[in-house]
């Protein structure tokens, strides 16, 4: 198994497949077993391919004993019916075994997190927090080695939740609640993205998942649950511009729910649903040009605000740690 894994890793490297949104760099349990299946299927496919193409080349080549044997109608039965039946039966049973071994083995009470897809961002709610559910957006933090159960829903159209490094995708469908169980084996930051075409800015609906050691996760969740610092510079401009109609900053009068929650937005890796790195500069860029960066997004344009007001709001946002 060790050698197998090494071989796979080499192949993956060869293909240059160590990206952060890649099924090749699997660190979640489901993704790891699927990656193993992927390689088995790939190798099997290559073998079958060589076999069939070999037979074809032989059939086209010089007349001889081999060609005569290939022309026998019994070869059609053997190669076309018996051989695929055997191979497919084995594959089918193997894939059922994988399905069966799914999250049923997860056992123990999982940590519940709700993720809601919305045109074109993600609402994340940590449901099991002692002080009541804690809402966040466009970033998911989970403890390494623990079973996490994601509850996936949609607020408008169909989206699909995909973090290839951890698991295959699950659709988010209006009127339904789907579940995905994750168990991550190593800490790290990976990228996820919407994979069901959901109109307009579908291509720009991404997020980050950060897997952290359980104790760090607990500490982080406690910080996340806390309200924002009061009376930060720019808070007044933020509220006066009406941002609070759509965004929530806990601890302030801003309690809107149409847009992403912003209480600790500056502590997240990205803004705009995985589009820009979180930097002071990018907050300004976002406020100035978000319609260019993410066409069709539902936030109004803020040309009517003066440069100074936008500057103040950006300063406020970058202080929301």
């Amino acid at each position: 198994m060790k050698r197998g894994a090494c071989f796979l890793a080499c192949l993956a490297l060869l293909a240059g497949c160590a990206g952060e949104q890649s099924a090749f760099s699997a660190t979640g349990e489901e993704a790891i077993s699927t990656l193993r299946l992927t390689w088995i299927l790939t190798i099997g496919s290559v073998l079958v391919f060589l076999l069939v193409i070999g037979a074809l080349i032989a059939a086209l080549g010089r007349p001889g004993a081999l060609r005569q044997r290939l022309a026998d109608p019994r070869m059609v039965t053997l190669g076309g019916i018996v051989f695929p039946m055997v191979v497919l039966a084995i594959l089918l049973i193997y894939s059922f075994a994988l399905l069966r071994a799914g999250p049923a083995s997860a056992g123990a009470a999982p940590l519940n997190i709700a993720v809601e897809g919305k045109q074109w961002w993600w609402r994340v709610t940590y449901s099991d927090t002692p002080g009541g559910p804690v809402e966040s957006a466009n970033e998911l933090r989970i403890p390494v080695g623990e079973t996490v159960r994601l509850e996936l829903t949609s607020a408008d159209v169909i989206h699909s939740f995909w973090v290839p490094a951890y698991a295959g995708k699950v659709d988010m469908i209006p009127g339904r609640t789907n579940a995905l169980t994750l168990k991550v084996t190593a800490p790290g930051i990976v990228r996820g993205q919407c994979t069901e075409y959901c109109g307009g800015a579908h291509a720009l609906m991404a997020f980050r998942v950060i897997a952290m050691p359980p104790e760090e996760f607990a500490a982080w969740l406690e910080r996340e649950a806390a309200p924002a610092e009061q009376s930060l510079p720019g808070e007044a401009e933020f509220l006066r511009a009406g941002c609070g109609a759509c965004h929530t900053v806990r601890g302030t009068p801003a309690e809107g729910t149409a847009g992403p929650e912003l209480t600790h937005v500056a502590s997240r890796q990205t803004i705009g649903a995985g589009i820009l790195q979180t930097t002071p500069e990018n907050f300004r860029t976002w406020l100035d040009r978000h319609r260019e960066i993410k066409p069709g997004n539902l936030m109004p344009e803020y040309e009517f605000l003066s440069a100074a007001e936008r500057e103040a709001i950006a300063t406020y946002l970058e202080a929301l740690e």
């Binding site: 489901e30 059922f96 075994a97 399905l99 069966r100 799914g102 049923a104 698991a167 579940a179």
Partner: peptide, 14 residues
């Protein structure tokens, strides 16, 4: 039929 033999009746298995 093999599917029915090998898998539980309901449940999304994720």
């Amino acid at each position: 039929t093999a599917s029915a033999v090998l898998l539980p009746t309901c449940g999304a298995l994720r």
